[in-house]
Design a protein around this nucleic acid. Structure first.
Lengths: 279, 279
DNA sequence: TAGTGGTCTAGACCACAAC
DNA sequence: TTGTGGTCTAGACCACTAG
């Protein structure tokens, strides 16, 4: 592999040397630390290499080359890459390649009481609205006497041109009785109408939960990911005088998002350094 | 495969029929809905089967049998099972088997101001304490003038005998100057001493973020999972008069935990039904 | 059209738990 | 010892992106 290395000598040699270091580290340390899975060891070595030798946005060699370099099967190499992608260190796109991902963005979730009509700039943008029954899991979060028909408002959260989250906001028809039946029965205009009514209600509290999920096909499309991609599912229950006025199920891209809750300190956690937690 | 089916006739036949339904569903629906990955389709079918036909704790056939039943390679079947485990639907244990998982437990995270000394019963239990430098990522969350040496308090959160989370609490030595240098320099006793001092400080705010991570070896051991298992990493910064008094990095099992934040509604989200969100 | 990551296969062996 | 899930291999083909 040292023979045909004469075109673009400088750049190629720099790249070569960085990978050579990593290769060595895999070869040598694997012998001593027995009984550690190859993919895990590989992931650790790659992670450290990314920390010290690579810049955000840099393109990695393709999977077949990398696997050959480290002397493992492509499937094993992929296991390591998948871990790193899960941790937000890498970004992989079919047909394109693998690049070093930027640090996760901190996304404020709690921000006290929000303005439904979207006066706060670049937060949520309403995309659509339909009317019908809510899924059983959501229905269970409403009060027993709430009717079956709800408005389903679709909203997308974008930052710096990248989609961060896709939300489905369920508003029981009984929560917004004043909603005019005259304007558009669906679509973005309808969505804004529902939000305006919700804003008029004046909510007095909320209840939130976060769990890991995998993106459904529709969410994945909005998030520019493949179905099954890991997401953080944020379920929020909004309370008004009468009880639960709305339920929001928001799915955030787990690879790119770090959810922040400013409970009282009101400070933003900064994370712009490249360093990572030591093992 | 219909021949030797005579021992435990009733139970086996019931089990057989349930799987036969799922098999059919895979075979038939795959033809129409083209261009959907097999593992994804398989996951959907299995998920619906779990919803309708299986009880919590039930044991599934082993992976080789299941793969044969559905006519796919074991690796493909495993991709589907991994997804379901990620979603908290299944529990797999090496050497034992695969079982239907109970619904995720709601774990309160915010609970206003806590009592460090652990008077609240079954929450965190201190396990150990060491002293030394903090990892760079954590150090970055402290104020610039904070010294290098911190107390690292290890705590475990358990519920119903199951480990939910493992925490590393970083307390700068400068935050707890009154800490007696006389009692045990490390171990659980030392941990309690540090927490007692922290309690005495009187914190006036906190700052929290949640992101997806994978369990490091030490955390994995505490959580009774394999290294690399998906976890929800909750990073909390505690403020006192002087600034950041402590930083906590808690890793929750993503498969079994749903983090709840009682921001103001103070209600617990109930989730004891078996139903799941429709696709 | 060429090159990338995504899916899938049919094996093999290993670590672990339980009998 | 047996059976389970976990790891690993060396291929193959497909879907997508970009030249």
């Amino acid at each position: 592999m040292v023979t045909t290395l004469r075109q673009e000598p400088l750049i190629n040699n720099v790249a070569e040397s960085r990978w050579a270091i990593a290769e060595d580290r895999v070869g040598t340390t694997q012998l001593e630390s027995v009984q550690e899975p190859k993919y895990w060891h590989l992931k650790t070595v790659l992670s450290e290499a990314l920390d010290s030798d690579f810049a955000v946005g840099e393109i990695l060699p393709n999977e077949r080359d990398l696997a050959a370099r480290f002397g493992v099967a492509r499937a094993t190499l992929r296991q390591a890459l998948e871990q790193l992608e899960l941790e937000g260190r890498l970004q992989r796109r079919r047909g394109v390649g693998t690049t070093v991902a930027p640090p996760r963005v901190g996304v404020a979730v709690s921000t006290a009481q929000q303005d439904w009509t979207g006066g706060t700039g670049e937060a949520w943008q309403p995309a659509d609205c339909t009317t019908g029954p809510a899924p059983a899991v959501v229905q269970a979060l409403f009060d027993a006497d709430t009717g079956d028909t709800v408005h389903r408002v679709r909203r997308i959260r974008v930052s710096h041109g990248q989609p961060l989250a896709a939300e489905l906001l369920y508003v029981p028809a009984s929560s917004v009785p004043a909603l005019s039946a005259i304007d558009a029965p669906s679509g973005p205009a309808r969505a804004r109408s529902v939000l305006r009514e919700l804003d008029r209600l004046g909510l007095n509290g909320q209840d939130r939960s976060v769990e890991l999920g995998s993106a459904r096909a529709d969410d994945a499309k909005e998030l520019d990911r493949l179905p099954g991609a890991p997401v953080l599912v944020v379920t929020t229950r909004y309370f008004a005088a009468g009880g639960t006025a709305a339920v929001s199920v928001a799915t955030y891209r787990a690879d790119t998002c770090r959810l922040t809750f400013g409970d009282s300190g009101a400070l933003e956690i900064r994370h712009d350094d490249q360093e990572r937690q030591a093992s």
